[in-house]
Design a protein around this nucleic acid. Structure first.
Length: 281
DNA sequence: AAGCCGATCAACCGCGGAAAT
DNA sequence: GATTTCCGCGGTTGATCGGCT
């Protein structure tokens, strides 16, 4: 024997709430407070499921709700929290007084996602969109399609073209093999820290994303769409990738075009990134 | 004016964990 | 401990609206 069902589900009204229903629910809850949602519709004289009442109250009728568009500050908070928490909308909403999880989720899906994609950032991972939506992406077909929509033609690894590097490749995402890292002159390499090596991870929030190693690993060089096994990943401190990026000529040679591509993205597009970031926030 | 299409958002659905019996 | 329901959450749907042709 368990609990009683929350409602009969027979003869219950569905769909948009009327002003009269809203008024009944509000006056009941303001008079009696929130207690047991199962009892609310009956006591308030509503032909609604308790669940529906709870949703209507928490998402629309609660007096402490803010209405209207999210401010830029709120939007920034949502993006930051989403990068840490993922799609845990209620947790995100708990950091934004007066905002509901539903509201934030809708805003994310309709506004922020687009903004980030426009900036070349994958909204699901907060990483730069992958240059080639082939074996290097593990997203759904829909996600891949979305990536393809914002990926310029010839942007893939095979059709590498430095002129078309977008600001998709942000500096916290540069992946550098250990041997290349070792070749970095000490002066130029200042500020670069090793944040990831296979089997270990740092505790910073962003590292959970930088630590996502290439899906397939094997040899030490790229073979027909396969990722090599990267010995190390490098995390660039925020101060470095926002303000102190080195813009001089690269002191090392690149044999792999994708690495070259990443390097060029690093050195040539830092300013674009800063501009886009300034536009967004 | 009518039809189409994309954007927006309120509301519903289904699931999982917690709690009651 | 097993069963059943509640509650909260995230994903999805569908009604509505505005812009465009």
């Amino acid at each position: 024997m368990g609990r009683q069902p929350c409602c009969d589900k027979v003869g219950l009204k569905k769909g948009p709430w009327t002003a009269e229903e809203d008024q009944k629910l509000v006056s009941f809850l303001l008079t009696n407070g929130q207690c047991c949602w199962r009892a609310v519709p009956k006591l308030a004289g509503l032909l609604r499921c308790g669940k529906s009442c709870r949703l209507r109250w928490t998402n629309y009728l609660r007096p402490d709700l803010k209405r209207g568009q999210l401010s830029e500050e709120e939007e920034k908070t949502v993006i930051d929290l989403h990068s840490e928490l993922g799609n845990r909308w209620s947790k995100i909403a708990s950091h934004l007084p007066g905002r509901t999880d539903n509201e934030i989720k809708n805003h994310w899906n309709t506004h922020i996602k687009k903004k980030l994609r426009k900036m070349g950032i994958d909204p699901a991972t907060h990483r730069p969109l992958q240059p080639a939506p082939d074996s290097r992406t593990s997203g759904s077909p829909e996600e891949e399609k979305a990536v393809a929509e914002v990926t310029p033609p010839g942007f893939g690894h095979e059709a590498f073209c430095v002129d078309e590097v977008s600001m998709a490749h942000l500096l916290d995402d540069i992946v550098i093999p250990g041997d290349v890292l070792d070749a970095l002159p000490a002066a130029d390499g200042g500020g670069v820290s090793t944040a990831y090596s296979p089997g270990s991870s740092s505790s910073s929030s962003s590292s959970s994303y930088t630590a996502s190693a290439p899906a397939s690993s094997g040899g030490s060089s790229i073979v027909d769409g396969e990722w090599p096994e990267w010995p190390q990943m490098v995390e660039w401190p925020e101060s470095t990738w926002l303000d102190d990026v080195v813009t001089g000529p690269t002191p090392w040679e690149f044999e792999d075009p994708f690495l070259t591509y990443q390097r060029i993205a690093l050195f040539d597009h830092h300013e674009t990134w800063n501009n886009s970031r300034a536009e967004l926030f």
